[in-house]
Design a protein around this nucleic acid. Sequence first.
DNA 1: CTTGACCTTCAAGCATACTTTAAGGTCCAT
DNA 2: ATGGACCTTAAAGTATGCTTGAAGGTCAAG
Lengths: 129, 129
Amino acid sequence: MRIGELAGKAKTRASTLRYYEERGLLQPPERTPAGYRNYGDEAVQRLEFIDRARAAGLTLAQTAEILEVRDAGGSPCGHVRDLLDRRLVEIDEQLEQLRLLRTSVADLRANAAQTPPEVCTPESICRYL
Amino acid sequence: MRIGELAGKAKTRASTLRYYEERGLLQPPERTPAGYRNYGDEAVQRLEFIDRARAAGLTLAQTAEILEVRDAGGSPCGHVRDLLDRRLVEIDEQLEQLRLLRTSVADLRANAAQTPPEVCTPESICRYL
DNA sequence: CTTGACCTTCAAGCATACTTTAAGGTCCAT
DNA sequence: ATGGACCTTAAAGTATGCTTGAAGGTCAAG
């Protein structure tokens, strides 16, 4: 399978696959005599895995690490569990930050709704903020 | 006031202030005969405003726009209200995305807790994802 | 008069995940 | 043999908000 066909099956682009190879997510495939990349069917599964990892918010570097462990013959499962744990902590932190921000922006907005624009003096630039 | 002193008062760095000037957030100040930037006290307020805008999650481009309106003698308040409205919508969208992601990652993690690592076959790379 | 702290500009680097561009080779059909 | 679709590499561009580096000028103290 050439790169364009694999990209089609994975709903991505050839340029992305080359980039994944460069980043260590895809192993360098065989080449045809002309130098074209020649992928086997297992590459499709690998890209599906990469997509699931992305959906979980793992970085390409983290995903590459998992794949390297597997490629080296190891089992990355314990590591994956740790990554999921850390992701959960990160997500909770982000949620907290975002909730605080939401409160803050909503307060500013409510305040703006009550205050006529005239009270904004040039020195304060705009008192809505 | 020279740039280092202003940076100190605003708890930022001289390089940041130069960058703000380049981005249109700070007006080019007077220069001393030697070519040093020479700020007045009002610059401190302006930086405080910029900081409040940042705290509300406005981009530097949006903040620059507000300041330009004010510098042109206009009142940016209506615009600021719009920006706050849009920020609120964006934040709500991000919150929704993050909640969905949290659910998804939490499900993966719960599933991993129930499944022994042995069932992860090399073909699936790791079934925890 | 030298040292050191501070200032100047312009350009490039950082992090992330790609895309785009340039210049060129391959392959199949007509 | 020529056109078009597809492939190759290496480098640069995208977005955001800065920081860092290089090369050099200014100024007050000792």
